[in-house]
Design a protein around this nucleic acid. Structure first.
Length: 293
DNA sequence: TATATTTGACCTTT
DNA sequence: AAAGGTCAAATATA
């Protein structure tokens, strides 16, 4: 693509960025859907890995080109509100209340986002469910969670949970933002949760490049509460060997049950150890107005 | 009583 | 207008 000599104008970059966001989204979903295929056919995994690598490189390239002062872009995430405390209005009212959709962030920051597959909703963090929505492209509703300490500690971590299309016993959990809270009740064993079971967690393959990217982003949800250098996180990630340790403790709290209709089945899964698989992750670089997703 | 979940309304973006 | 994300009243649970 264009080297440093000629720099594309901003609108062009915006467009590319938006498209990249869509590609990322699609690739992530594809990765989830193709999970079973990858086991039986390494070529599938290789292709996906290649795809992911290209996306990551392109993203990095794009980020290098501009600070991303773009339009709101993808509506997916980052809609963290600046205002709050407004009372609900019944039906029609003035337009003061700005709910839903995307809100802009005041300052540039790094929004971390990663998607994992898990048999349990208990990841050791304390979440508060604030919504559920039937999603067009999915048979299962999507649930929205924020950190319990959003207001008392201004912790902006969020997650979205959906049952996997290919396996209703598995959750697809998308984490957004970092936990900045320090909950004393927040399990020390969460630290062991950062122990993804090494290489084959990454569905797209084991290439060091991929792993490096993931290392950088994992702290979003699984790092020990105190942020440390990337290297520290890295060691947590790669050195840990079992996720079962973390899954043994699933009774610690009661997670919200998803669909009422399947609630019973799902609940029984909580005590059962399942794998925690990382499928895909992204680093979203936000600027004043835009975000890259 | 306090806290968490459910669920329809409401909001923004496309 | 549709889709997705969030709010908050009503309700459930500890």
């Amino acid at each position: 693509m264009a080297p440093s000599s000629t720099r594309p104008d901003t609108p062009a970059i915006d467009t590319v960025a938006k498209e990249m966001g869509k590609i990322c989204e699609s690739a992530a979903r594809l990765g989830v859907l193709l999970q079973p295929e990858i086991a039986g056919n390494p070529t599938v995994g290789a292709i996906l890995e290649e795809l992911q690598g290209s996306i990551l490189r392109a993203s990095a390239l794009l980020n290098g080109l501009t600070g991303f002062d773009t339009d709101p872009g993808s509506p997916s995430f980052g809609n963290l509100r600046e205002d709050s405390g407004k009372k609900r209005k019944i039906k029609s009212a003035d337009a003061g209340d700005r709910r839903g959709g995307c809100r802009r962030r005041a300052h540039s920051s790094l929004i971390l986002m990663n998607t994992v597959r898990a048999k349990t909703l208990d990841d050791g963090q304390t979440w508060r469910k604030y919504g559920q929505k039937q999603i067009q492209s999915s048979e299962h509703p999507r649930s929205y969670f924020r950190c319990t300490h959003k207001f008392d500690q201004n912790c902006m971590a969020q997650r979205q949970v959906q049952l996997a299309e290919d396996d209703p016993k598995t959750y697809v959990i998308t984490y957004m933002g970092e936990h900045t809270c320090r909950d004393p009740t927040m399990v020390p064993h969460i630290i062991s949760a950062s122990g993804f079971k090494g290489t084959n967690l990454i569905s797209f393959g084991n290439k060091s490049q991929t792993i490096r990217q993931i290392k950088a982003a994992v702290p979003a949800s699984f790092a020990p509460r105190k942020q440390e250098s990337d290297e520290e996180v890295v060691s947590n990630l790669t050195s840990a060997s079992s996720s079962s340790e973390y899954l043994q403790l699933t009774e610690a709290e009661k997670p919200a049950v998803m669909t009422p209709s399947t609630g019973g089945d799902v609940t029984s899964d909580f005590q059962y150890s399942g794998d925690l698989d990382m499928d895909f992750m992204r680093v979203l670089d936000l600027d004043d107005d835009g975000f890259f997703s």
